[in-house]
Write a protein that binds this DNA or RNA. Structure first.
Lengths: 233, 233
DNA sequence: GCGCTTCTTTGCGGCATATCAAACTCGCTG
DNA sequence: CAGCGAGTTTGATATGCCGCAAAGAAGCGC
């Protein structure tokens, strides 16, 4: 394993206010890890012994019900900290994290969390801002689920994906990791069948372009219309 | 306004580790305020100039959609801090807070937040624990909304209410503030009609007892069964 | 290149819930 | 205590979406 470079962390929000010596210190205590797409990074209610910084890839945070249904709570883009149970006064992880794509992450033992918060200015501020944003997002989800129809929710899920994890291509904006109809149904509280039907219909209308495990939004504006329009189609 | 007593705060989690002198300090900077049931305490996206400690009553946190639908995000019981936008890196409130019952709260200007966090040991720890708990509750709601039927969601909403804001009476556990079918429908993502039908049916079965704006759960155990049972009734 | 697994599409029927509509009841205020 | 508004109940009807079923594609390993 070659030595980790300072420039890896310097531009990221949690570390942006730190001096290069401090970043060195933090890096020296980190253990880099790889996760293959689909791998479980940590399990809900598991002992929270480690916190993570996602360097590359995407992480999907899910919860599983007693009878096996999965619900996607949110997606974490690279550059963000995750698994910081200690920051919210927990000793176990509140949800399961799986690698949505191949991932590279730095990991630290949780006991360093308090030390980081104490020693590094801005570290906790930025983290709590992230928590606030995630909280807002899941609140939006509740409002959506309570008030919108399936079509609108799926449109919103897609819009959220391209906003957070989208990559521009010449055809439009594509979701940067393999994602199935099933995944999208778990994000929007519906079934893979309904998602498939919607995507087919949207594809016919030239709003999206989809292959197996691959979705590209070609006309985000129209998709926004679908996410707002009530019953129309 | 008579002088506030130390013993008001001493037993509450955010202050439990503090010495009496510190509590005095905190109290001297507080402004007590009353809110009538139904009054708006603060508005979503409003300038977050104040944070609150609820001494008595219940606060309902809601979000309103563009077309006027309301969704209840959570209820805050007395003894908890709320409106601490600064703690999650915001300058505006993320949702609207209304008094579900007549309320008494202590209020502080938001600029004191950082000072409190710095000066008072355990203050921030306890707050972040609260945030973690609320986050978990909201996530549970998402899972519920995604996987459960209306009957189960309404049962869960009721159970949550009696757990968090319930008061024992000789007939069962009663929700300690006036609550309408409409309110419950806004908590469970359904309509007041459906809630009314469910409550009627449960009342016939002797599980709840309800008057206008008043609900008492007489058989919580059976209600748990409804919250778990799939299609049965 | 063949077969297997995983993912996707599409049709059909049923049902859980929303929606519409209207009457009823409670508790206030004048 | 009459009149009113807010909250509740209940029925009838409509429909969005799920659940079931089965057939296609697409990718992967052997």
């Amino acid at each position: 394993m070659h030595k980790l470079d300072d420039s890896l962390l310097a531009p990221l929000p949690p570390f942006s206010r730190l001096q290069s010596g401090q970043i060195r210190e933090i890096l020296d205590q980190a253990t880099p890890r790889r996760f293959d797409a689909g791998a479980t990074i940590f399990e809900a209610n598991g002992e929270a012994g480690t916190f993570f910084l996602l360097l590359d890839g995407y992480v999907r945070v899910i919860r599983t019900t007693v009878d096996g249904d999965q619900v996607v709570v949110l997606h974490i883009p690279s550059g963000q900290l995750f698994g910081f149970a200690k920051a919210i006064g927990r000793t176990t992880y509140p949800a399961t994290a799986v690698a949505a794509a191949d991932c590279v992450a730095l990991t630290w033992p949780m006991r360093l969390w308090d030390e980081f918060v104490r020693k590094y200015d801005g570290f906790s501020t930025v983290t709590y801002k992230t928590i606030g944003e995630r909280m807002e997002e899941i609140q939006d989800r509740i409002v959506e689920m309570s008030t919108l129809h399936v079509e609108q929710r799926v449109a919103n899920a897609l819009l959220r994906l391209i906003r957070q994890t989208g990559r521009k291509t010449d055809e439009g904006i594509t979701i940067d990791f393999p994602i199935t109809r099933q995944d999208i149904s778990e994000m929007s509280g519906t079934t893979l069948h309904t998602v498939s039907r919607l995507l087919s219909s949207w594809e016919k209308q030239g709003v999206v372009l989809s292959k197996r495990k691959k979705i590209t939004v070609t006309d985000a504006h129209r998709l926004v219309v679908f996410s707002e329009a009530g019953v129309a189609n």
